[in-house]
Design a protein around this nucleic acid. Sequence first.
DNA 1: GTCTATAGTGCGATAGAC
DNA 2: GTCTATCGCACTATAGAC
Lengths: 193, 193
Amino acid sequence: MARWQPGAAERLQAAALELYLARGFEQTTVAEIAQRVGLTERTFFRHFADKREVLFDGQDRLEQAFLDGLAAAPPDAPPLAVVAAALTASADFFPDERRRWSAHRQAVISANPSLRERELLKLAGLAGTLSEALRARGVPDPTATLAAESGLTVFRVAFTQWIAEGERRSFADVQLAVLAELGAMAAGATAPA
Amino acid sequence: MARWQPGAAERLQAAALELYLARGFEQTTVAEIAQRVGLTERTFFRHFADKREVLFDGQDRLEQAFLDGLAAAPPDAPPLAVVAAALTASADFFPDERRRWSAHRQAVISANPSLRERELLKLAGLAGTLSEALRARGVPDPTATLAAESGLTVFRVAFTQWIAEGERRSFADVQLAVLAELGAMAAGATAPA
DNA sequence: GTCTATAGTGCGATAGAC
DNA sequence: GTCTATCGCACTATAGAC
């Protein structure tokens, strides 16, 4: 028999989310999380940089999905269309089966300012990656940054709606609807009478 | 003579920014900041919730400026135009004399992820306030959220440009240029060929 | 795997302003 | 007397150093 069970990181994540949900983020100590899966505090910090980080992984894969979708867009597509392609590619990460889990995780995050901070930093990182990729395609600043940030805004708004009570549409569908709404809003403000 | 000098919070802020700039945020202890202005650690935490917060105040006044500008927009203005009015009102907070100081402060923040997190939380708070105000004007979601978030994106991009080396335009001018660029980008993506 | 610095909190005491 | 700013001390947990 193995000296330690495999999947330490995954077990720590599961235990952390449970405890954060049950008694709140601040009321949960790292020692408790580690103990629950038979590990030590020290081991927790070997896997995750800090107590918050345990809720934010898989970000790399989401980022890669964005980049893949972006790369698949036609070379001459306008910036916002390129971003839309990236967003579409990300929809695979949010199948209907994941909706409940996403809602739980989001509830924990939304309830704690320090977790909100970390979430915003991660999303800002995604926006930075996207705008960087746009610049690599030849889109100049500030257009690249504006397009990337707008894309992330669509992503966030769509995600919030997707996990809302009673929402039935797929993440992809919600995202398309929000994207259309963004276009309408921008057109409404710029269209001459 | 008074037992304590007035303006404790202001003195703590000044000392904190100096030390953060000189030796870095993490390398500076709260005890050092407090000692430098003749106060104790405990008093620092009476004025600021945590070590980061000392760099983020006056946020309330900026928020109020946004709201005032927003309230001054005509009732039938489209959402993004209302947001533009709020942005314009905020320009008073960034006169040319403040450009250098803003750049220094931003350098400290940008150099530290934990400060970036706090900054993003504050900006998200502003966006939340704006979208709330739009909803109060009768703008439905998700348009209200999209307009508010887009406005903050413009604000952030403009601010970054305003403090960039060699930039001479006023904050108001930069912001207008970015706003126009956002309109062009949105139009470019939605306009049929 | 242990040891330690530091952030941050709770409660109480003190000293001045009014 | 009340109110408020400050300080002192004990304490926990995070996070990093050794």
